[in-house]
Design a protein around this nucleic acid. Sequence first.
RNA 1: GCCCCUGUCGUCUAGCCCGGCCUAGGACAUCGCCCUUUCAAGGCGGCAACACGGGUUCGAAUCCCGUCGGGGGCGCCA
Length: 509
Amino acid sequence: MEGSWTFLNNGSGYDIFLAWKSTQRNNKKNMVRVRFAPSPTGHLHVGALRTALFNWLFARHHRGTFVLRIEDTDVARSSEEMSRSILEALNWVGLDWDEGPIYQSQRFEIYRQAARSLVDRGLAYYCFCTPEEIEARRQATQARGEHWKYDRHCLELTDEEKQELREKGVPAAIRFLVPEGVTEFDDLVHGHIAVDHKNLEDFVLLRGDGFPTYHLSVVVDDIDTRITHVIRGDDHISNTPKQILLYRALAAPVPQFAHLPLILGPDRKKLSKRHGDTSVLNFRDKGYLPLAFFNFMAQLSWSPGNEEKIYSVEEMVREFSLERISKGSPVFDLSKLEWLNSRLINEMPLTELIGQLRPWLEREGLWSEELMTERREWFERLVDLTRSRSRTLVDLCGMIAPFIADRFSYDPEAVRKHLQNGELDRVLPLLEDDFRKLENFSAPEIERTLRERAEKEGIKAAVLIHALRVLTLGRAVSPGLFDVLELMGREKTLARMERLSEVREMIQT
RNA sequence: GCCCCUGUCGUCUAGCCCGGCCUAGGACAUCGCCCUUUCAAGGCGGCAACACGGGUUCGAAUCCCGUCGGGGGCGCCA
């Protein structure tokens, strides 16, 4: 999107430091504007993704604007690689943004200006206390059994004292001067919330090194981008009063807030890496479909009603509403995702499935153009036949592999169970001959032949069926064997039948 | 420690705002049966919850109070 940042600085106390001039300028006043603001200190994790998802859904539902902002003010812990990874994850899920990404690291001067203007107006003050000094005073206070809160030591400093400290080279942070009173707001999820300012200390806006803290940069950016609804995790509820105070100090309209319940691990603790790989891209790599993942994530804390089905993205956009978000924290339990995924694999149009599967086959070296041309019909039958046994694209890929390539492994358990019967050494060669003589190597013919041979040799058809399955696929699980053999083709089938003793030996050692 | 949020089957949730239709509904998981050459898929069925205690009321999952449990925040991290 076209636009430009203009720095509006008249040198005196002013409130908005930047104005976003763009083609969106003449939008309606009540247009919804939301943002997702991840910190690039790691891969995008599922908790953050859900926040992004709800913001996106809300924006799309209201035909509003979704802004992406990268909160990389912590230069030491942020990396460009993680920023890229986050965009990649959003992309995979299908979340697109209308503005941004805006990088906070490119806006440091703006935050400094904002902080200084607050000092100029007596709403904030310089603090020369070092972390060590504060820590010492805190411990002393707590040793007396009293509650610690920053003691405003630097609020009373005279100009001479400040000058002296500056000359000594003591770095100055800027603290917000929290006024007395109570801050109240109506959270769109939790309802009315009130916090007495005596529970708030004079928090730092600008660090001694000139870098902004989270509260400052968030509020300044949200003001500049004219965010109307701040939708974020529950863990920010306690921070909200501070930020509202900042909005007021900067004479900006306060947006609406909606705090989403935090996602918990199975142990009911805040979901984190300890609970396994919670990175969004991990789910892509495990073979989950974006839509299944989307459904699963969106329905943690949100319910579109009571119809149980897989929703298309469009349907979710239509149904989405903050009012239907529940307040309790959900537990992250993958079993529903697996079910969603397998159902989608089963129900989605075949062509679409093949499109999703293609990158996986390519990676395994199983892809060739002829699967889309002369072997297309065969390939579609194959995918259609195997899909109901696959919960993920990884499964599907593994299922299909033996039909395309010759390298596949034999499940030792399956070999032991189905290839030990001594009768096989005698009957299998006969069956091979039968197969060779078949005019059409088709499922019905194969079945008829096999059953006849079994009866003639006084052996159960099931014995042959199971043995053939293991010999041709290496495993005891597959679609109906006769379809399998037809799709595999006579050549591969016969070649693999001849490996009986070879396979047995392979398992012995 | 202080402050804030939260509490319906194992899990996700519907119902709660606007008390009775709730002997609390659905889905996932689980168990059983059917189908069957294996495993799935599918069909049918079972088990399973209003955290607890007081009120208010003819009547409470729904309203009020308290208790307990769970989570989060209190950084010159975001």
